[in-house]
Design a protein around this nucleic acid. Structure first.
Lengths: 202, 202
DNA sequence: TCATATAGTAGCGATTCCAAACTATATTGA
DNA sequence: TCAATATAGTTTGGAATCGCTACTATATGA
């Protein structure tokens, strides 16, 4: 019984936070895009990565991104290493309105929880996410903090940077460690990667 | 920081649970309708109550309900006391497919949590819901267990039923106590329920 | 070099949702 | 009592969204 109540509360909370259509002229879907590109690291700020993250198609993702670029909320730059790929970054205009994100209602609600509870809460939610993601064959996004690809111990020694990602073979700066990444591999052994097969499917 | 992670996880969980379009021929929106009418008490099984619960318009709610009535998943009966009102009930056909509800993915994920965690989890989610609902002036749905309108102590004495609702002045049977109600009024301290510490309220 | 895979975009058709108008019944109060 | 107003529900029209399919361009690999 408790499990059902948990599930219903989770979806209900998600709904009422976005109930009122446009905020700052952006639709809930556009806010989701903005939020993703604000939180994703430089390897993951692409249309395809957003589509995978948001469980939608690349076409749908492309549309939403296009509208945000047209509004001046996202800036698009072609990748230097891969001519097909583009990277998207928030503009100052976008950063100026992130405080108005309707998600802030939920953030405020979480802030009102007793501090000791929040850690366990995050833990429980992450476990649920991992469970659902693996069951549905959805990609599992996460941050370096629990990623198997993270190398280094934070100590700068003999010219090496304190951290690096073993997957893309790139050094990382400290601020990047808690950005979400499409290449996330959960801490232990098994690594559910991007659903590589069927690139057109969602 | 934790608060933002919590908020993002909540909405993300809500999304990936419903990512794959139709299930059993029903859209995510239709599933939400069915789920509501399966969980709402007899005072709350109306289009308007669903619209309020789901933070949508009565027109939108009416459309979704009409489609489910046409499919034979909901049965519509006019109210005897109010000629304007209708009440909706799940048909056997609908009850037969509730196990296929895409929400079950989340229920399963919640079930995989350590038992001791679930109670606290429900508690935290409820607090967040209350916080958001009051801040956004959204109606707050809940069950009799924590409702200020609940009267009676569960003891049958001199012809009186064990419980009653003081708001609609109607007796209640035990099964109705954990159905969600549009007339919910928070304020009653959570009564330490009798046996299984798990089956808490909502 | 040719075949195949991947990144991204464009267009179409279906669906969904909101807002507003409308019908019917209840309620209020002068 | 009767008119004014409020409420329950439905209908309709238009806009927005989304997924599917097709398409271009680049990358990769045999």
């Amino acid at each position: 019984m408790d499990s059902r109540v948990i599930a219903e509360l989770v979806v209900h909370l998600g709904r009422i936070a976005f109930g009122d259509g446009l905020v700052e002229g952006l639709t809930p879907g556009q806010w989701a895009v903005l939020r993703y590109f604000a939180r994703a690291n430089r390897f993951s700020r692409t249309p395809s990565a957003f589509a995978a993250f948001h469980s939608t198609t690349r076409g749908t993702a492309s549309q939403a991104i296009k509208s945000l670029v047209a509004q001046g909320h996202l800036r698009q730059t072609r990748s230097e290493t891969d001519g097909r790929s583009v990277r998207l970054d928030l503009t100052d205009k976008a950063r100026a309105i992130t405080a108005k994100d309707p998600l802030e209602a939920l953030v405020g609600a979480a802030d009102a929880l007793p501090p000791g509870v929040r850690g366990h809460f995050v833990n429980a939610l992450q476990r649920m996410q991992g469970h659902v993601a693996s069951e549905k064959d959805k990609p599992f996004f996460g941050t370096c903090e629990t990623c198997d690809h993270l190398e280094g111990d934070g100590c700068c020694m003999e010219g090496l940077l304190p951290y690096a990602c073993g997957f893309v073979s790139e050094p990382l700066i400290a601020e990047e460690l808690n950005e979400i990444c499409i290449n996330f591999a959960p801490g232990k052994p098994a690594t559910p990667r991007i659903p590589d097969a069927g690139s057109a499917q969602r």
